[in-house]
Amino acid sequence: MRCALAVIFVLVSTAALGGSHFPPGHVDRMRGMTPITDEATPPPFVDPDDSSVRRARNYAMQPPVIPHKIDGYQLDTHVNRCMFCHARTRVEDSKAPMISVTHFMNRDGNFLAELSPRQYFCLQCHVPQVPLAPLVESQFVDVDVLLRRAGSPSATLRE
């Protein structure tokens, strides 16, 4: 037993030391150079993207990101503020895109007359954006790029 613990300890500590790409004293990306014993000063709030420019989706099933700010929008069991604009009956007034038909589907794939309860909390899938550099670099490759590499005639995105 003691032996097993020792092995785990060695494994864990080598993983922790070996896996670290940070300069000495740099504890983690969120804290920056602040030592673990000190309180880090939080960065100022950044205004979310409110440009209303709809962004390309990275894959067909991606929930689109929200191109406007949602500060103070109430979303609880009493009120769904998002539906004030995105509901089927509201889009004529609000000029917002209607929630797509998948939002009316229950888990058996049947269409309900109204927003399906499992789609009620919009922020589970849709998020606003802030103009900040990502903390971790993304190595995502668009599927269209892969298709193009494979010679697909309908792939339009270039590397």
Binding site: H78, V79, M83, F84, T89, E114, Y120
Partner: peptide
């Protein structure tokens, strides 16, 4: 809680209801 809105409209009339609450919000 907007679930009671329809009964309230029956009592107080539609004059007391902001446009944004008619339609979509009542629907959900």
């Amino acid at each position: 809680d907007l679930r009671g809105l329809d009964e309230m409209i029956a009592v107080h009339g539609v004059d007391a209801v902001p446009a944004v609450l008619l339609g979509g919000a009542a629907e959900v």
